[in-house]
């Protein structure tokens, strides 16, 4: 498939997948589109990094980081809890394929492969959690810095 078409398919499908999942967990109506944007950004980050050959862990971590940052921005703009944007957003990153392949390997009695795949799932999930934590760190730092700035301005005006 031609490259521009691939990009188009990936963008639209990750948007739709997030949107579809958001419907099943009863996301408030005014947040639906932003959820889709968040899921799309996370997946495209992951996809491009995977194509650059960074490996699964960095790609998932960066994807989750982008979703976390977007979640913080959206939640501040819309005054809604962060998880409304984060939970649907990571759906495309959830390692469903390796998880199922691990089950498949267990059923087939291929324990070596099953352990390898289970480990892969564990690593991906930890990477996603780490990405979120990095995003949280950035958010804490920025609020600290802006609070300090405000304080200094107040002191100067006083």
């Amino acid at each position: 498939m031609a490259y521009p078409l691939q990009i188009l398919v990936n963008m639209s499908f990750s948007f739709l997948a997030t949107f579809g999942f958001a419907l099943t967990i009863n996301i408030p109506r005014r947040a639906l589109l932003l959820c889709g944007v968040s899921g799309m950004s996370g997946w495209m980050t992951y996809w491009w990094l995977m194509q650059l050959g960074t490996g699964r862990m960095i790609a998932n971590l960066s994807g989750a980081f982008i979703i976390g940052i977007l979640g913080i921005v959206f939640s501040r703009v819309r005054k809604m809890p962060i998880i409304i944007f984060n939970i649907p957003g990571i759906v495309p990153l959830v390692p469903g394929a390796p998880a199922f392949q691990a089950v498949r390997a267990i059923v087939d009695g291929d324990i070596d492969n099953a352990l390898r795949l289970t480990m892969k799932v564990g690593i991906v999930i930890s990477a996603i959690a780490l990405g979120f934590m990095l995003a949280q760190l950035v958010s804490v730092l920025t609020t600290r810095i802006s609070n300090n700035k405000k304080k200094r301005q107040m002191e100067q005006t006083l």
């Binding site: 997948a17 579809g20 999942f21 958001a22 419907l23 099943t24 495309p92």
Partner: peptide, 24 residues
């Protein structure tokens, strides 16, 4: 608290399943 009607959730699931399958 209002939930989305069941048919909308079903459509959401259909979209999710098919698109994620292609991505994965």
């Amino acid at each position: 608290t209002a939930e989305y009607p069941l048919w909308m959730q079903a459509v959401g699931t259909a979209i999710l399943s098919s698109t994620l399958m292609v991505l994965f």
